Simulated scan of single mutants.
Amino acid sequence: MKRICFCVLSPFTERDYIRFGIGELLSIGYSVLVIDCTPFLNARFENYINGNQIRFKSPVVYSCYSLSSFIKKVFEFSPDWCVDILGGFSIENYLKRVLIRLSIKLKAKIIQYKLTSYPYPSLPRNQSFCRKTLNLPKSAVTYFLSLPWKIASTDRIAVGGSFDFNKFTKSNKTVVKVHNLDFDNYKKFILKNNSIETSNTILFLDEDFPCHCDLFNLKVEPPVSEAKYFQEISNNLNFLAKKLALNPLIKLHPRANYSKSSSLYKIPITNLDTVKAIAQSSLVIAHCSTAIQLAVLFMKPIILLIPNELSKKSIYFKSIVKFSTFLNVPALNSQDLEKIYKIPEVDQSNYDNYLENYVKMKSSSDKFSWEIIASEVFSKN
């Protein structure tokens, strides 16, 4: 029996259990262990997000509270393959991370999942000679500290789109063509529904912009304020809904505080799962959510909203612009919404190009991601 270990650094939820196909892997005979390292590698975040409460309760999900218990668990389980979702090289808890990586490599082959990519804004490449010179010491230190990950290197990389496929193929990595994990959700929905009834709705994909838990984890200030954001978005949605004769709905972010957000938004909150809500909508509104790719899969018209408080220097602003350019969809702030007189048309060529680059290559299998990885990676010696 092949043994597969998943090492994660965020409370492993029921959503994670489903999206990584844990139940399916167990059903076809694999022995699976999920080691959640959040309690000892990021105790601050574990306590903030109430990890024990949201973590999925299953015999195969193990909460790890120390480095020694992690190493003991890995050696006891003795996995054939390890899916490393610990985030790689980091200064924080550096020594612990090095020992974790080395202990994994001693017992198993390592596969890295690159199945959630999207058009992230690129950093400027043409730096001045002075800037490059000033960065040399930092680059040297980074290279030295990352050596353990180069020595205990990844054996396989599972990718979704051609962007990552080309990137890692050029770096001589052994790449497995899979697809973005959201394609699994799309496929499940299509298999269960012979036809899709479109409702007369305008759906906003909430990203919990003012209070996302990752802001606390990354120790950064919110890009917008609670005091202004919720009212602004509510006003914008009501304005568009009235102008386009649609009913406004909001799908909250999976980790948003439901009671808090639903009371601050002045728009109805849908309890449909994200895939179904998008599939049934007439128009999708978002900022830069990765769930946008579900709207692309369903070929839904999209409008991207730029909050008035959002700085043009913000990574979120740049992400919105990147999505807008790639998909050829409007990116507008409150003042620009008056320019919208009808539901935007879908640029199928741009949508198809996005899917090829970030979601699913035409040359990849139509099977579920866990099926492809089990067949192409886990079943091999």
Rank of each mutant, 00 (worst) to 15 (best):
D80S: 14
V220W: 00
D16F: 13
N235T: 13
S365V: 04
A241E: 06
E92I: 13
I250H: 05
D80A: 05
S263R: 13
K132W: 08
E207A: 11
L102C: 09
L134I: 12
K173A: 14
T169R: 12
F230R: 10
L244F: 06
N381L: 08
S153E: 09
K342G: 09
V60D: 15
I285M: 07
I202E: 07
F129Y: 12
A241Q: 05
K242P: 00
R101W: 01
S334N: 14
Y118E: 08
A140G: 02
E197M: 02
K167T: 11
V159W: 02
S262R: 11
C37S: 13
L355R: 14
I306L: 12
E92H: 09
V8C: 08
F77V: 12
I196R: 09
F168Y: 15
S319K: 01
I303F: 02
V377Q: 07
S262E: 10
K167C: 08
S78Q: 14
Y229C: 04
G29S: 11
F70C: 11
Y62D: 05
F183M: 06
L294S: 03
I372A: 04
N166A: 05
N257R: 11
K276F: 01
S311F: 04
R3F: 05
Y118N: 03
E207F: 05
L337C: 10
N180G: 07
F209H: 09
P330M: 08
I278N: 08
T198I: 14
P248G: 06
T116W: 01
A286I: 10
P301I: 03
D347M: 01
F70R: 05
G88N: 10
C288T: 02
V176Y: 01
L106P: 00
F165E: 08
V178T: 15
L191D: 15
V377W: 00
I151G: 02
H212K: 06
S311Q: 11
V32I: 15
S10M: 01
R97K: 14
K96V: 02
T174I: 13
M361Q: 11
G23F: 08
D36N: 15
S363V: 15
S314G: 09
I340H: 03
K2R: 15
I250Y: 04
R101S: 06
T201H: 00
F163C: 05
K107G: 00
